[in-house]
C-alpha cells in the first residue's frame, strides 16, 4: 500500500471506523483511541497489506480492540454504568432516532457489532464472520436475534405510548 493509498484510507474510512467504534462502545474517548490505534497499525504494516484489504483489516483490528475493551470493562464491573456516564449523542437526534438508538444500545455487544457491520458497512455474513471470528451461521443467528430484540423493544414502546 502506498502512502497515497494509506491517506485515502484515512479519508474514506476513519469516519466510518469511528462511528462503528462509537456505536459499539458508547465511549467517545476510547473510540477515538481505537481509530488512532488501528491506523497506526495499518501504517506500520502497510507494506504487507493491499489497499483492497485495508478496510477489512481496519475493522478487524477495531473489533479486536473493542473486545479487549469490553473484557476490561466487565472485569472492572463498569459496563452497567456506561449507558449513564456516556450519553454521547442522545441530544443529536429527534423523532424515532433516539428510540432506535436506545434499542440498538440494549443489544448484547456481539449482536450490536454484527448488526452495525451489516447495516453500516453492508458486509455479508462471511465478511462479518472473518472480522469477528465467527462462523457464517453464528453471524446470521446474531443478526436475526438482534433484529428481533429491537423489533420487540420498539413494539413494547409503541404499546406503552399508544
Amino acid at each position: 500500500m502506498t502512502v497515497t493509498e494509506y491517506n485515502l484510507c484515512v479519508e474514506e474510512l476513519s469516519d466510518r471506523l469511528y462511528r462503528f467504534a462509537l456505536k459499539s462502545l458508547k465511549d467517545d474517548d476510547h473510540s477515538h483511541d481505537i481509530v488512532q490505534d488501528c491506523f497506526e497499525k495499518l501504517w506500520l504494516k502497510k507494506e504487507g497489506i493491499e489497499f483492497t484489504k485495508a478496510k477489512s483489516y481496519l475493522f478487524t483490528t477495531a473489533y479486536n480492540k473493542m473486545v479487549d475493551f469490553w473484557r476490561r470493562e466487565k472485569f472492572r464491573g463498569e459496563a452497567e454504568n456506561l449507558e449513564e456516564t456516556h450519553s454521547y449523542e442522545q441530544n443529536h437526534y429527534s423523532g424515532l432516532k433516539p428510540i432506535i438508538n436506545k434499542a440498538l444500545d440494549k443489544l448484547p455487544e456481539v449482536q450490536r457489532t454484527v448488526l452495525l457491520l451489516r447495516d453500516y458497512e453492508g458486509y455479508d455474513y462471511a465478511e462479518i464472520g472473518k472480522i469477528c471470528d465467527l462462523s457464517d451461521s453464528q453471524v446470521k443467528v446474531y443478526i436475526y436475534r438482534a433484529r428481533l430484540a429491537m423489533k420487540n423493544y420498539l413494539g413494547s414502546l409503541q404499546a406503552v405510548l399508544g
Partner: peptide, 30 residues
C-alpha cells in the same frame, strides 16, 4: 405493524458523527 417494526431495525449510520483528528492520521511521503 410487525413489518413496520422490523423495517425500523435497519439502522442507518449517523453521518454527523465524524472523526475529528483525521489530519493527524495522514502521512506525508517518505
Amino acid at each position: 405493524q410487525n413489518k413496520s417494526l422490523v423495517q425500523l431495525t435497519k439502522v442507518d449510520a449517523d453521518t454527523s458523527l465524524v472523526y475529528k483528528n483525521k489530519s493527524s492520521l495522514k502521512k506525508r511521503p517518505a
